[in-house]
Simulated scan of single mutants.
Amino acid sequence: MEIRDSLLDRIAEAEKEGWLGEIEGLHVSLADAESRIDQIDSAPGSVAINLGMSRKAPAHPAQKEGAGSLRQSRDDQQ
């Protein structure tokens, strides 16, 4: 969707500036982007699926484990 909006903005700018060749190329790109969006929207199973994943932070963050591993490797070097 952002690509389509960007192309529309660029087409408006090209029309304002009179860049005829640019306008034609942007319209081709816009048609292709809209075609791809339509394909994605019409694809079977293209609805969002809730995977049931929790948004809560883990009880034991990985950073604590990593810090201990870093200390251990420093001790090993000495």
Score class of each variant (00 low, 15 high):
A31T: 13
D38F: 08
E22V: 04
E2D: 13
A43R: 10
D76H: 04
S29H: 01
A33H: 00
P61Y: 06
A31C: 10
G52H: 06
Q77M: 12
E13L: 14
S35R: 13
I23V: 12
P61T: 12
L70S: 08
D38S: 07
S73A: 11
K56N: 03
K64R: 11
G21F: 02
I40Y: 08
R36L: 07
L51E: 08
I37A: 10
S54C: 04
H27Q: 15
P44W: 08
I23Y: 09
A14R: 03
Q78W: 07
E34T: 10
S46P: 01
S54V: 01
M53G: 06
D5M: 05
G45I: 01
Q39M: 09
E22T: 05
S73K: 12
K64C: 07
L51G: 12
A62L: 14
I37W: 05
A57N: 12
R10K: 14
S35C: 10
K56D: 05
L8C: 12
G25K: 00
E65Q: 14
R55E: 04
S46K: 03
G68M: 05
H27T: 06
P61L: 11
R36T: 09
G66E: 06
S35L: 07
A43L: 05
A12S: 15
G25S: 01
W19A: 11
G68E: 05
W19N: 14
I23R: 06
E65F: 08
L20K: 14
V28E: 04
E13N: 06
D32M: 15
S42L: 13
I11H: 03
H27L: 06
E13D: 10
Q63V: 15
A12G: 13
L20V: 11
K64S: 15
I23K: 06
L30E: 00
R74F: 13
E17T: 09
D5P: 11
A31L: 12
L7G: 01
R74T: 11
V28S: 07
E15Y: 13
S54M: 01
L20R: 13
L8R: 14
V47I: 05
M1Q: 14
G18A: 02
P58M: 12
A14M: 04
A48S: 10
D5A: 11
A59F: 10
G68W: 00
A57W: 00
A14K: 03
Q39I: 01
D41Y: 02
H60Q: 15
D75H: 03
E34C: 06
E65M: 10
A62W: 05
D32V: 10
S46R: 04
M53I: 12
L30P: 00
S46Y: 02
R55D: 03
E15G: 09
A59D: 15
